[in-house]
Amino acid sequence: MESILKIENIAAGYGRVEIVKGISLHVSKDEIVSIIGPNGTGKSTFLKAIFGLVKVFTGNIFFDNEDITGLKPHQIVKRSMCYVPQDNNIFPSLTIKENLDMGAFVRHDDYSKNIEEVYGIFPLLSGFKNKKAGELSGGQQKMLAIGMSLMLKPKLLLLDEPSAGLAPNMVDEMMKKIELINREEKAAILMVEQNAKRALKISNRGYVLSMGKNMYEGTGEELLNNKDIGKLYLGE
């Protein structure tokens, strides 16, 4: 399968501080790929760097065979890559419907069908279309945040800790939704996850990062069964 995202040895960070110190990675068009690793290893910063939210010092990012290194988020969004931040990822004083409208802000065509699709994936949301997003539970807010990003029919979805802060049963639910989105919406998914085991179970492949660099790479199963990784990062 052709790759949708290809990253060649990027270094990135804030100001002059280098946090990502040379990571390479690729994601194919139909894949779910997870990035795991200990805290403070630059996973989230790496995701932000792909999306143009953090400065890339060296290296290249290719999306859909186009070099997007250094582009701004609003330019990247127009190329159908969406990013869902870990926190503060909804507009609390807007209703669910208005949040979805904002997700479709860059679209100028009729997106009403798309809204119905999102409600189809997250039936819970369709129950309170006119409720303020700030009144939703934490899990529902995460679903809404992902729903917003689906309004642009993304070819690639970047998810920062989609299960963080969720109750255990909601974590399973979230992972199922991610699989569903990958299958039904034909969106490739690159996610950073603290909940490494759960994430690797649904992932085609995974990358283990350490100190801002690649450590291991393998299929979800390989990484789950690797004893070193198990000891270090999966809490066994």
Partner: peptide
């Protein structure tokens, strides 16, 4: 209006507005 909703969105969360492509 689209612009009006975006104003309220910006007032809620300016960073997120940028992330989802609002100029």
């Amino acid at each position: 209006s689209r612009i009006g909703k975006a104003m309220r969105a910006l007032s809620d969360n300016m960073q997120l507005a940028g992330v989802i492509g609002i100029e």
